[in-house]
């Protein structure tokens, strides 16, 4: 599986990371090196093997339905780059 410049651009877009056009070829090459390394996995016979789902199988713990959190808008907003009137503010989203 070889990645070209267009695919690299697509991945960057999916990951929401801006990559300059002239940096794409180098990025694609790095991907290909890494993917080339990963290709080894194809050598393994995985017939009938279940994918690992949990590292240490145990029963998923449940919480009681009690309100134990929240009521701290100041703390929630304290690190925001742009908080206004109790909201997080971001550049306008176009639907």
């Amino acid at each position: 599986m070889s990645i070209d410049k267009a695919q690299a651009a697509h991945v960057a877009k999916l990951a929401r990371i801006k990559v300059e056009d002239d940096a794409l070829p180098a990025l694609a090459e790095e991907f290909n090196t890494i993917l080339g390394f990963i290709e080894q996995l194809n050598e393994v016979d995985i017939e009938g093997v279940e994918p690992m789902v949990s590292v240490t199988p145990m029963r998923l713990k449940r919480r009681e339905d009690v309100v134990t959190d929240g009521q701290m808008p100041d703390k929630v907003l304290s690190n925001a780059p742009d908080a206004r009137e109790g909201f997080f503010a971001v550049p306008k989203v176009v639907e």
């Binding site: 929240g70 009521q71 701290m72 808008p73 929630v76 009137e85 909201f87």
Partner: peptide, 9 residues
């Protein structure tokens, strides 16, 4: 009130 029913999670 906005952002008052919000846990860090």
């Amino acid at each position: 009130e906005p952002n008052s029913n919000v846990a860090f999670v």
